[in-house]
Amino acid sequence: MQAPDPVEAILARLMPPALSQDCQYELEAMIDDLTGPEPANVVEISQVNWTARWLIGGGIAAAFGALCAVFPIHENTSASQTAVALPKESPSGLVLVSQSDRVESMTDEGWKEDADGLALHAVRLNVVGENKMRDRETGMVVQISEPREEVLLMPISSF
């Protein structure tokens, strides 16, 4: 094994030499010239009213949440709803090639009771509807996927 002194000498040769003091001052002066003059109208952001801004933001978020609770963005779809038949050709020149629905997962939600007191068995389904459309002019086929969540309610006749 080699002595540590020759290894240190080899490593010392790999290190770049340090800059001289004059060279370092010149580089700093060049960087200062490139940055330009300091702006005269710098305004500090005040940290005094952070509580007011926090309360205003929280109020806006609470108002938006209340609005979404009163007027829901989308309605829950149910399996008992009838499906709307898509036209074979839309006015934009797209032709329906294929249409399919697949169930990705099912979750048993147990027994529920409706307004009339009828016992129902609830099953939550995660369904993905897929449509393939072909453009008449270009021949390009586009696949449209629509994930949705459905709750299937089945009446219970015997206990």
Rank of each mutant, 00 (worst) to 15 (best):
D135T: 07
A63F: 15
I144A: 09
L94A: 04
T82N: 05
G57N: 14
T35V: 13
V103A: 06
A3D: 13
P4E: 06
P72K: 04
V42W: 10
D116T: 06
D114L: 08
I10F: 10
L120D: 00
T51G: 01
P39V: 07
G129N: 10
L153V: 00
R13T: 12
S80R: 12
A69E: 08
G57H: 08
F71K: 13
V43F: 14
M1A: 09
A83P: 00
T35G: 00
A122F: 05
A85W: 05
N49R: 09
T51S: 02
A18Y: 02
L34M: 07
T35F: 10
D33V: 09
G65R: 07
L27W: 09
M15I: 07
V142I: 14
S20V: 03
G129R: 14
E137S: 13
L120A: 03
L14S: 05
V70M: 07
G65L: 15
K112S: 10
Q47F: 13
F71G: 00
E150C: 05
L14W: 04
V95I: 11
L152Q: 06
N41R: 15
V103G: 04
L34A: 10
E137V: 13
D135I: 07
V84Y: 02
P39W: 09
L34I: 10
A83S: 08
I73L: 15
E44K: 11
K88N: 09
E28Q: 15
L11H: 10
C23K: 12
L55H: 00
S157A: 13
E26W: 11
D135V: 06
E28F: 13
L14R: 07
A115P: 01
M154V: 06
A79D: 01
A18Q: 05
S20H: 03
E146G: 08
D32G: 07
A12H: 01
E28L: 15
Q99E: 05
S158R: 15
R102D: 11
G93V: 02
I31F: 09
A83C: 05
V151H: 03
Q24N: 03
T77R: 14
G110P: 01
D135W: 09
E149T: 15
V141P: 01
R136I: 15
A62K: 05
P17T: 09
G129F: 06
I156T: 04
N126D: 13
V127M: 06
L153Y: 05
S90C: 04
V141L: 01
